[in-house]
């Protein structure tokens, strides 16, 4: 299974809740830009979904693809 992650940067306000909830997936780079892989493995699905849920602007879309 693949877990796809898409962040809508028109909506993201850099609250950083995703970085706090899933630091292995989301991080701010040296310029303060949010960085994340577009795909993660099964083992990271739950963390990615927590980050999606916690995002105050609902900018993160996580989909599980079999």
């Amino acid at each position: 299974m693949t877990v796809r992650i898409v962040v809508d940067f028109d909506v993201c306000e850099q609250h950083g809740q995703c970085v706090e909830a899933a630091p292995a997936i989301f991080r701010f780079d040296d310029e303060g830009q949010l960085q994340h892989p577009s795909e993660v493995g099964d083992e990271s699905a739950a963390d990615a979904e927590d980050a999606q849920f916690l995002c105050p602007t609902q900018a993160i879309m996580v989909t599980r693809e079999p």
Partner: peptide
């Protein structure tokens, strides 16, 4: 709203609920 929600949100994440 954001401040209150951030307190109670933690109990309702997908992994906690799962």
């Amino acid at each position: 709203h954001a401040q209150r929600r951030s307190i109670v949100n933690r109990a309702f994440t997908p992994s906690k609920i799962a």
